[in-house]
Simulated assay, not measured.
Amino acid sequence: MNDALPAADAPHLHAIEALYSGHHSWLYATLRKKLGNAMDAADLTQDTFTRILASRISVIDQPRAYLSCVAKGILVNWYQRKALERAYLDALAVLPAPEAPSPETRYLILETLHEIDAMLDALPPLVKRAFLLSQIGGLKYDDIAGQLGVSLITVKRYMKQAFVQCLMLVE
């Protein structure tokens, strides 16, 4: 154990260490079976334990249920990311060769799309929906208010919240 860590971290680190040593193989095997890919399963297993480590939780009554729940959330995000990548690559496939971006540009665009997707996922559902209706659907704020069943001022507040989140992405 690292002596530089505060004593308050010790229970948390011991709990995570026990969780990892006792259940890593099980979680990896579960994800590998679900994904059919050892590398992705290893990455998602590690991401699961990293998220738990960051959560600061010290007591886990039902470790496998907890691991399954956390891993499921990470897996859903992973599937969304893969779907986003496929949609982007499918859109690129129909471009004439001279208009297709370079591999470096493709990578940068994909990374930006992932950051935007993560930013949108951090928004409350109605804020996210209002933002997407405006920016992708092209709806006016009045129409969004009617569709969401909220006031115009609420839509403006939602949009401000979404734009502030977007600004945090570029900083």
Rank of each mutant, 00 (worst) to 15 (best):
P103R: 08
E115K: 15
I153A: 13
L27G: 02
L19S: 03
D40F: 03
Q147S: 06
D61E: 10
P103S: 05
I109L: 15
R56L: 13
A41E: 00
R157D: 01
L120V: 08
D121H: 11
K34F: 14
R106A: 07
D43W: 03
K128E: 04
S151R: 04
L113A: 01
S21R: 13
L67W: 08
A29V: 06
V170K: 07
T112C: 09
M168N: 08
R129N: 09
A29I: 13
I136E: 11
D9Q: 10
N37S: 13
I136P: 04
L152C: 08
A97W: 10
F163Q: 11
T30H: 12
A18Y: 13
E99W: 14
D143E: 07
L89C: 01
E85A: 10
A54H: 09
A18D: 15
G149F: 03
T154A: 00
L13P: 00
K160Y: 11
A71H: 00
F163T: 13
T112W: 14
Q135P: 00
E104N: 06
R157K: 01
V127T: 00
S58P: 01
Q62H: 07
L13W: 13
L92T: 02
A41M: 01
E85P: 03
P125C: 00
I144W: 00
M168V: 03
I153F: 04
Q80V: 15
A65L: 12
A83N: 13
A65D: 10
Q165E: 14
Q161A: 11
A7H: 07
A42I: 02
E85H: 14
T50M: 04
V59S: 15
V94S: 14
W78G: 01
Y158D: 00
Q46G: 08
L120I: 11
A7R: 06
R81Q: 15
I116T: 06
A38N: 05
G73D: 01
I116V: 10
A29S: 14
G149P: 02
D121V: 05
L75P: 00
E115P: 12
W26F: 07
A97H: 15
D90S: 13
L13V: 07
S68I: 02
L67D: 01
Y107H: 15
L110A: 02
G73T: 03
T45E: 12
L27V: 05
Q80P: 10
K72N: 06
G137N: 09
V59L: 09
L5E: 12
L84F: 09
T154Y: 01
L31I: 10
H14T: 12
T112D: 07
P125T: 02
L167V: 09
R56D: 04
L120H: 13
L53V: 12
Y88N: 03
A54R: 14
L84Y: 03
L5H: 04
P103N: 09
L113F: 08
L123Q: 01
N2C: 05
L95M: 15
D142F: 11
D142P: 03
R32V: 01
I52T: 02
V70W: 02
H14L: 15
L35T: 02
P98I: 04
L89S: 05
P6Q: 10
P11E: 05
Q80S: 15
Y79E: 09
D61A: 07
L123T: 03
S134Q: 06
K128M: 04
R129F: 02
P6A: 08
